[in-house]
Design a binder for these strands. Sequence first.
DNA 1: TTCCTTATTGAAAAAGTTTATCAATAAGCA
DNA 2: TGCTTATTGATAAACTTTTTCAATAAGGAA
Lengths: 145, 145
Amino acid sequence: MDWKNTMTRLGYRISEPRKKIMEVLEGAEVALSPQQIHQQLEHKGFDIGLVSVYRTLDLLTSLELVTVVYDPERNPGYVLSSTGHHHHIICQKCHKAMEFSGTDDIEELIHRVEAETSFQVRDHLLQLFGICPECLNTLNDRGDK
Amino acid sequence: MDWKNTMTRLGYRISEPRKKIMEVLEGAEVALSPQQIHQQLEHKGFDIGLVSVYRTLDLLTSLELVTVVYDPERNPGYVLSSTGHHHHIICQKCHKAMEFSGTDDIEELIHRVEAETSFQVRDHLLQLFGICPECLNTLNDRGDK
DNA sequence: TTCCTTATTGAAAAAGTTTATCAATAAGCA
DNA sequence: TGCTTATTGATAAACTTTTTCAATAAGGAA
Ligand SMILES: [Zn+2]
Ligand SMILES: [Zn+2]
Ligand SMILES: [Zn+2]
Ligand SMILES: [Zn+2]
C-alpha cells in the first residue's frame, strides 16, 4: 500500500508540501532531521515552511509511514519505513541508515525480561550501529583502524 | 568500581554539584531529563546551575556512568548505568525505567544483519517498552484494557 | 594545614529546536 | 466550477542546548 492511498483512506489530503517532503525522504539514504529536510527543499527551490515539515513528519510518524531513528551524535532523524517489522542499522561514520527485517528478533529476550521484571512488554526499540561497507573500504584504503 | 574512583582515576574532580547530581540519579527510578534533575536539586535546596547539570550529564554519559534512555513521548532521560551489558525497559504509563541484563541478547541477529548488510556492527541500542507491574495493577483495578 | 594551579562552576546571553495561533490558501468532493 | 474545511505559512512564544568568561573551589604540593 502506497503512502498516498494510506493517507487518503484515512481522510488526509495529499498536499504539495507533503508530496515534496515524501520525495526528499524517498531520495534519502540517511536519516534526516526536520532542518535537513527543510534545507533540501530550499535547495530544490520549494518554499515550504519548517513548521509544515514538523507537522508532516509528526503525521507520517503517527501513521507509521516514517520511523524515528536515534543517533547519539545527532538530532533524531526520520526515515521512510516499509511495511512490516523492521529496524535500522546506522553507520557511525557517514550516518547512512539501512533497514533490516526484524522477524522474531528478540522473542526469547522479551519473554525472559517479562518473567524477570513482571513488566508486560508492548513494544521495542532496536537499532544497530556500525560501519557501512563503503566506509569500511575508505578506512581500509587509508590504513586506519 | 565506584563512580568517584572512576572519575578520580581519569583526572576529573569530585565537585559538590557532581555529587548532588549523582545523588539525584541514585535516588531515581525514572529516567530524568536535565530539567527534572535541576528541579529536584532546587527542591532539595541546592542551587546548582542548569548548565552544570548538562555538563555533568554529558561527562557522566561519555564515561558510561549514566545511560541515555529514549522515550518517544518525552525528552531523552538519563539513568545510572551499572557495570556490564545492560538495557532498559520503560513503562509507557509512569515512565519508570528498569534495567535488565543484556548478555548474548542479540548475537544471532547481529550476525544475520552483518551478513545481510555488509555493515560491521559495533554497538546496539535496545529498549523495551511496556507496562510495569504497579501500573498493570492500577489498570486492572479500574477495569481499563 | 596552607598555598597554588587549574578544572569546574554560575550567570548571562546566544543559538537552536519545537509548539501554538490564526488568517489565508488549496485539496478533494459534489 | 464552486464549496467546505483540512492544511499551510507567518509570526510569535516556549523550550532546550551550547557558548563564553570571570569567579570559585578541588586537590596536590609544600
Ligand atoms: Zn558509512
Ligand atoms: Zn524487532
Ligand atoms: Zn508504570
Ligand atoms: Zn545488548
